[in-house]
Design a binder for these strands. Structure first.
Length: 280
DNA sequence: CTGAGATCCTGGGGGC
DNA sequence: TGCCCCCAGGATCTCA
């Protein structure tokens, strides 16, 4: 599932290929993945030049020459697939599976938006529209300090796991990195957020940034479907401590990792290292 | 405001 | 081998 590190990896891989390129063609095969509508995308995108590409939360953000913005959210199984221009005489490659929307660049390259489960969306946002107002702070931004996290968690009575997944509070963390950071910080995922001690919150802040930074360095986690824009898998699945590891011994204490459901999500954790009520 | 639950989707894995 | 069932889960909406 593409979370912050996976989206960041995709953007870094795509940046040099798309920036400065004009969109010469657009093919929409599954209209409902286009927002606000396939017709609007089809009338605006062709002829536009992509002048920027960056990440915000789990969104890939393309900026057009008109200052309009195209957002891509991959949800669970979405992929952006870059296909380089054909060399002379080469035969046209097959369309990638589940390529519901594709656009061509002025050098002949294609970018395909493929998604088996069709939860992903491509959205056109008019210039100057504050589309990210509802999104919380970026966890790797310098503004995200331990003090900022303390303020975010104060008065939140729900489980810390839920708070970490709430994009309106902190943007970009998904199930994998929430589980991993909580294990690294030795915090029980059920702990009411407002009951965490200052030292626990400082640890969580530190481990969130460490886990996300390392995951970016390792080009993301390919737990199931994720690959980057060039089809390469990430490396972080090889160093996961708890996510998806029910029954495996904890790296720290050998207690068997368990899986429970919190916030309607599978949650993996160590009942010894992450015992409730332990405050340090 | 906060929190909880339903909803959207379908490939793939497990069980028989 | 084949079929059925259920799981994976991010954002958004509704409701208490």
């Amino acid at each position: 599932m593409p979370e912050l590190p996976e989206v960041e990896t995709i953007v870094r891989g795509l940046l040099d290929y798309v920036c400065g390129r004009q969109i010469t063609a657009l093919e929409i095969r599954l209209p409902r993945i286009a927002s606000p509508s396939a017709d609007i995308l089809a009338s605006v995108l062709p002829g536009r030049t992509i002048v920027g590409c960056h990440r915000r939360a789990k969104y890939i953000v393309f900026t057009l020459d008109t200052k309009d913005v195209v957002l891509v959210h991959l949800r669970m199984t979405g992929r952006l697939i870059y296909v380089a221009p054909l060399s002379a005489g080469a035969s046209t490659p097959e369309l990638p599976r589940y390529a519901h929307l594709s656009f061509q660049l002025d050098n002949g390259a294609w970018v395909h938006f493929a998604d088996a489960r069709t939860f992903g969306r491509m959205t056109l946002v008019p210039r100057d529209e504050q589309w990210d107002q509802r999104l919380g702070i970026e966890p790797l931004d310098t503004a995200f300090t331990a003090l900022a996290l303390i303020e975010i968690l104060a008065r939140r009575r729900g489980p810390i796991k839920n708070v970490l997944l709430d994009q309106r509070l902190i943007a970009g963390i998904g199930n994998i990195y929430a589980c991993e950071a909580l294990w690294a910080a030795r915090i029980n995922p059920n702990t009411p957020a407002c009951e965490l001690s200052r030292p626990q919150i400082r640890r969580l802040h530190c481990e969130l940034q460490a886990v996300l930074s390392l995951a970016i360095e390792m080009r993301g986690t390919s737990a199931r479907d994720y690959v980057d824009a060039e089809g390469l898998k990430g490396g972080f699945q090889n160093v996961l401590s708890v996510y998806g590891k029910a029954g495996a011994p904890c790296d720290r204490c050998q207690t068997l990792i368990i899986r429970t459901v919190i916030a309607q999500r599978g949650t993996w954790w160590c009942t010894t290292c992450q015992a409730l009520k332990v405050t340090l």
